[in-house]
Design a protein around this nucleic acid. Sequence first.
DNA 1: CTCGTTTTGCGAGATTTTGATCATGAATGT
DNA 2: ACATTCATGATCAAAATCTCGCAAAACGAG
Lengths: 256, 256
Amino acid sequence: MLSEKRRSRLLDHVRRKGSVRVEDLAEVLGVSVSTVRRDLDEMDERGLLRRVHGGAVAITDQPVPVETSMAERAVHNLDEKGRIAARAVDLIRPGSTVLLTGGSTTAQMVSHLPSVPDITVVTNSVAIAHAIGTTSATVQVLVLGGLLRNAELSLLGHLTTQALADVHIDLAFFSAYGLDPAYGIMGAHLAEAETDRNMITAAKHLVVLADHTKFSQRSAVRVAPVARIGTLVTDDAAPAEAVAALRAADITVIQA
Amino acid sequence: MLSEKRRSRLLDHVRRKGSVRVEDLAEVLGVSVSTVRRDLDEMDERGLLRRVHGGAVAITDQPVPVETSMAERAVHNLDEKGRIAARAVDLIRPGSTVLLTGGSTTAQMVSHLPSVPDITVVTNSVAIAHAIGTTSATVQVLVLGGLLRNAELSLLGHLTTQALADVHIDLAFFSAYGLDPAYGIMGAHLAEAETDRNMITAAKHLVVLADHTKFSQRSAVRVAPVARIGTLVTDDAAPAEAVAALRAADITVIQA
DNA sequence: CTCGTTTTGCGAGATTTTGATCATGAATGT
DNA sequence: ACATTCATGATCAAAATCTCGCAAAACGAG
């Protein structure tokens, strides 16, 4: 197994279980305890988990970015993700049904949504549903069911896929973990990939949100080929050659 | 078990019960009393609890916010609901799957859940899913899909019902809006009633949570007859004749 | 293929954690 | 006041885990 894949699976285990023992990980992954220790130590360095005697425990940081008020946004400079999110919301037509998949950039769209009349938001993100429910009374929200991934607050699995079948979606917004003009959209975790693929497939038109840092992110998991992208919303700092390549592939690129 | 996890569970027990004996903790956690003492001493050192002869008690250090009389009432009620919630969590057996329906009292159960090992929580409440996701990495959460009722942050409708069909539920906890020993469980809104009925039907055993104020609440919507109730958790101030009537109807009544 | 680098597995010695024992101090009943 | 019971802290040995160095294996470039 690729060492990168092993680390990804290791992190998955930690996040799923909350805590794991070195011995168990070694057995599950089929490697020695030394290797597991080295992996855990490195990921502790990178802040992905916390190393403790005998194993490791998951980090439980605050994953919910508290939205700043609309007024404040109008006065201050919008940050990169905020600008991208605002431009993305411009693409929504009144009366349509849109899918927001879990992710930091899509979450930024929430505060802009009330400006579009009569829309329905479908989402697999508990964070997004919670944010809309507590801030807006006009936006209709439909939550896809599924297993909660604690770290990301997004929903996965069979129930999510099944719920998708009963919903008509005009426009889907997807927060890319990484974006390669040749390879396609990258996902962060294998566990989420299948659900992401299903959500992407369910939409007529796919809008991908990716700030310029996403172009240099590499990952082993591809959730969709480039051809599936309808529109890309990114920022001015996106690599010019990547933008050109995507436009050549008949993709509308918007730079906020 | 990882020592880190053991400490976390230990702290949960202390906070849940308010106070706890060293002997009991040793038995529950499956370690020696020496280990428990060391753990308790360290957590006393860190200010997470207070060590006393024979065991430990929870810290009840209230940061004093400016309170309107309204908020003050809410806090007082919260304490009552908190006790009911704690007793309700005691009913959960390790390894089981429980349903938490949306409601203020069921939401109080969240902070106590990590003390029960290896449970799966099924819920139609975005607030509960959000709360568990941001505070605990050990509790498995499955969210039923559906339309978001913005005011309550609970999910309703066809998708919710459909998702229920794919889940096996050992124990369901329901926050009653009103409770009449003759008529049964009352719901607040007609829109929620059907989904509530379906959730109640899906469970083998139904636990109803209702503080004493719920006995005088009147509503036109009945979501379930009294006979459907398996266990009622309420407080000491519940009307004696109502408690007697329910016990006569073969319902287990717990007064926190 | 050969060389240099990286990754991995192994084992010795150091460190941490744990459970048991016991003298001492604290709570309780008479 | 006294005796009795129980909890405590200290100490020690055993077990589990970690660290570190080293060598074998895997990998990539030339």
